[in-house]
Structure formats: C-alpha cells, structure tokens
Nucleic acid binder design. Sequence first.
DNA 1: GGGGGATAGTTTCAGATGAAACTATCTGGG
DNA 2: CCCAGATAGTTTCATCTGAAACTATCCCCC
Lengths: 159, 159
Amino acid sequence: MRNSVRRIELSQLDLDKFVPYKLSVLTNRMSNAIARLYSERFGLSIPEWRAMAVLGQTPGLSAREVAERTAMDKVQVSRAVASLMRAKRVTRTGDRNDGRVTRLSLTPKGEAIYEEIVPLALHLEAVFLSALSEAEREALLGLMNKLSRQVEGLTVGGT
Amino acid sequence: MRNSVRRIELSQLDLDKFVPYKLSVLTNRMSNAIARLYSERFGLSIPEWRAMAVLGQTPGLSAREVAERTAMDKVQVSRAVASLMRAKRVTRTGDRNDGRVTRLSLTPKGEAIYEEIVPLALHLEAVFLSALSEAEREALLGLMNKLSRQVEGLTVGGT
DNA sequence: GGGGGATAGTTTCAGATGAAACTATCTGGG
DNA sequence: CCCAGATAGTTTCATCTGAAACTATCCCCC
C-alpha cells in the first residue's frame, strides 16, 4: 500500500486557471466599464442603477421586491432609494393595505435617465459579446445558468 | 390615470437576461462561498488570500508583482501584506539591487495555512464545476478567455 | 554627477459597505 | 382583544476601500 502521506507535492493552485478567480476578474472589468456609463454621466452607484433598472421595467415594486430582483439586500436598497429620492429620480408612496410597505416608482426625471442609459448599457453588452458567435453566446448563457443553479444549491441557507 | 405605456421601441433591459449582471451575481456567489473557507477559519480577507496564493506558488515576488498577478492594485497589496506580516504569515526582505523593492515570502506558518486552504479551494471549485461535463468546462474556459480579451481591449489605458 | 522624471510602496481621508440594533406595522393563537 | 413573533424598512457603528498625496529610491540624459 502506498504511503498515505497527503503531502504529495500539494495539488497546485494557479490563480490563472482557477475558475472562480478568473470569473471574478472578468466580471469586475465588465462591471466597471458599465458602471462608468452611469456614474460619470448621472452620478449613479451600482445599487442605484440596479434599483432604477427594475423600477423602470416594473414600477410600483416594494423595497423588498427590488431587493429580490437585484440580488441586493434590503439595506443596500434602502440607501439606494434614499439617494434616488434626494435626487428626485424615484418617488415613494405608502401601500394602502400594509403600512409597512412602500411602493416605489421612477419620476419622469428618473424615467428620462433610465431611457437614456438602457441603450448605452445594451450597446456595451453587445460590444462585449461581439467577441462571440451566436452559438457561443447561447452556450455561455447555458453554462451560466447551470453554474448558477449549482452554486445556489450549495448556498441555500448560508449567509 | 395616464399610466405609462412603456414605449415599445425602447430596447428592453431585463436584468435577468443582461449578461454582465448575471455574471456579476454568479461570481459574487462563488466568491463568497470560497471566501468563507478562508475567512472563517483563518481570518483572511480576499486580498490577503490572493496574495498568499501567489506567494505560495512563487515566493520572493515584489509587491508590484503580486499586484500584477492578482489583478489588485498596489494599495490593496500593501494593506494585505501589512496585515499578513502582523499575523506572521508573510516576511519581507529588501531587494539587494533595488532599495525600493521588497521581496515577499510566506513564513512556515503562512505555508501551513496555504497548504491547508489550497485543497479546500480546489475542492470547492470542483464542486461548482461538477455541474458541467468535461466538454462544457473546456467551453467555459474558452468563452471566458475570449470575453476577457475583448473586455481588456476596451479597457486599455484604464486602470 | 546632478536634476527631472519614473517607479515602489505607504499613508491619509473621505465615502462606501455590512452586520446588528432599532422602529413601526402586521398576523395569528390564546 | 392583546401579546409574541414575523416582516418592512431605517439607522448606527465599525470596518473596508479607492483616490490622491506622500516618501524613498532609482534611472536617464545632459
């Protein structure tokens, strides 16, 4: 029986080939490039923009619903909304059935910004994806979905 | 009430289908899962662990070289190294040819931690990737490389 | 061989962020 | 009813982070 020493020249960790690390670097670069679109022009942070993105698509969401759809937590949403309201880009009204809930929507001013940013963001995404063929894009989506399900499965309950 | 009929011509932005956003969520979940490995057990932050990872593989790097290999900036590296030295996990010696440069290495204590974490990290990566077939893993790597090159090309000049 | 500019690394300061505590409201069982 | 616990959202505090300023050393070139 072979020697049960576990220190067989240590399984190598090369950051360049470590998938979570590579993904992280790639993602940060993309996010930063996109963040520049809305931070430079409109002074929006990432959480603010995400909140606007879902409210632009679905007005009247509660803060909790915004949090769910953006994968942010309620504290982030609360801060983003506070800042957006200060800038008069979002309005808040009380829910008539539940005093705890607030209903959020973009103001006309907020909508104008939304409609200006969306095409820019989609364009930048298209530029990124232009490195891939149509088939590759579909493959990418599929792989991301599989990985997401796998990671979610492991993350359940943990926080 | 004159509610907003969303203009059809407006290209739609659905966060659920927006690749940079999806990647971001996926990546954060993976990173957090891995971060738990080393933060809970050893109190390491992500920058600290990244620095240890490259120093474990290549002792004697300068701070700048660590920064290059980990895609961190020199400030992050400086802080991570300071903290690691406080914990006696990394040592620093001056370069004999260039007084500005410091050479960094793991201490035995640091190495012990490194050798404990690496298998855990690789295992977790394997668990993530177990959702994919071998062919899919290769496809993923290829797609990530293509996207990375594309994004780098656009980011040139930026730091 | 001395000064201007580049490079390595650290520090400072101000703003961002996360965890936990807090307020207010709602719901269900006695 | 009313109390215990759940839920929505905010605030606080301590930490983290990024940008810019700073120190120290080196290199180029006149």
